[in-house]
Design a protein around this nucleic acid. Structure first.
Lengths: 137, 137
DNA sequence: CCCGTTCAGGAACGTTCGTTCTTGACTGTT
DNA sequence: AACAGTCAAGAACGAACGTTCCTGAACGGG
């Protein structure tokens, strides 16, 4: 019943991952999300409840569908270095003040340790942290 | 001439370093700064020009007076691990979109490399990044 | 063919943001 | 003692924030 959804929820979630991987949570406004995702404000709130709801959905999707496969698929030469950016941002600026994010990130880091070993995991994070500095817009 | 300043500019700068080391730039409002620093809004703007001006002043002070001495003083066992937090935050969330910050952070990382070697420097950043996740309020 | 639901567009809400202004009290210099 | 310049306290500013509401139009199920 009712008019069918005009957008793909998964596609929007994936696009949100891309946006949140570049700008920090506080640096990305709802207007930015509306424009960047091409989805109306109403639909965003109806679907995800709030900005934070969208963020958590995107973060979970990213951890499950972007990060996890990279770890099981063997090895350290990451195909896309930017694949760590959302993890970095979430760890540095959200996790310290959001227990739910802290829990998710903590689990992800444990998986990273299990897959690569703690030293390699830490070095990988440090490397991507340094690379992000010269991120082009 | 005029009434003398009621606060120590250096002390305020140092306090601002502490505040910006915990909360991200966007997560710290001018009201937070006014309350946390105990300095009136007027004095803040008169002295530092803007929120960003205060941030840059604090960042420079931190790089010159907090980080640099740690590097020359020999060695890797950092006395205070939190001494890397402002560097981390600036690198992850400010540097990518603020060339001035990017330049400062780039120089600081070069110094870190020179003092510890690139691998140790990267590992140190990764370690502190991980530690920050469970930062207590 | 309606009816109910969801859609899209956009105005509007109250709050908070960074910044500026107004007022009057204070203090060092002349 | 008068002045000049800075201080503190807080109101006020427009813009932006996250969120909600209003208005029709679009559609699928009965």
């Amino acid at each position: 019943m009712g008019r069918p959804r005009g957008f793909d929820e998964q596609a929007v979630t994936r696009a949100a991952v891309a946006l949140f991987s570049r700008r920090a949570y506080d640096g990305l406004s709802v207007d930015d999300l509306v424009n960047g995702l091409g989805v109306h404000r109403n639909s965003l709130y109806k679907t995800f409840g709030s900005k934070r709801g969208l963020y958590l959905t995107a973060l979970r999707w990213y951890l499950d569908h972007d990060l996890a496969p990279l770890l099981t698929s063997g090895a350290s030469p990451f195909p896309d270095p930017a694949a760590l950016d959302l993890l970095l941002l979430a760890a540095v600026e959200q996790a310290p003040f959001d227990p739910e994010v802290a829990s998710l990130i903590g689990d992800a880091l444990a998986s990273l340790d299990a897959a690569l070993g703690p030293d390699a995991a830490t070095a990988l994070l440090g490397l991507r942290l340094r690379a992000r500095i010269n991120l082009k817009e």
